[in-house]
Amino acid sequence: MKKIILSALVASVALVAADKTPIYKSGMLLPPQPKVIYEQQCAQCHGMDGKQTSFKGSSTVVYSPITGLNADALAKELKEYRGGIKSKDYGPLQKYGYGALMKTSLTDLSWEEIDSLSQWISNNLK
């Protein structure tokens, strides 16, 4: 019993500690947080509203908006982009363009994370 009280105490002390901002990273077996994944992996090119259609890096790239998408179809595409993690059998997919770039952004995501991200994009970017 003593043990349990002690550990409960420690846990609650930890909980009220000052500077706490929960952090999220993909691929670490955490419950998916699609909005954070979007901010981390997608927003730079696609914009928070999904309407951005060009990005100026060393050269300018142009692409389509990602609003009004169907969640299942999007998840399927993103999974194809990601491919298997280590298998040589899957190269970057060029079917939809920007294969290598998309693969880099998606490579850490589990399928569960891709599913929840697709759902979030479909629900929120109209």
Partner: peptide, 11 residues
Amino acid sequence: ERIKGLENAGR
């Protein structure tokens, strides 16, 4: 998830 066909399993 590295095995094709079991990607849904995750790690």
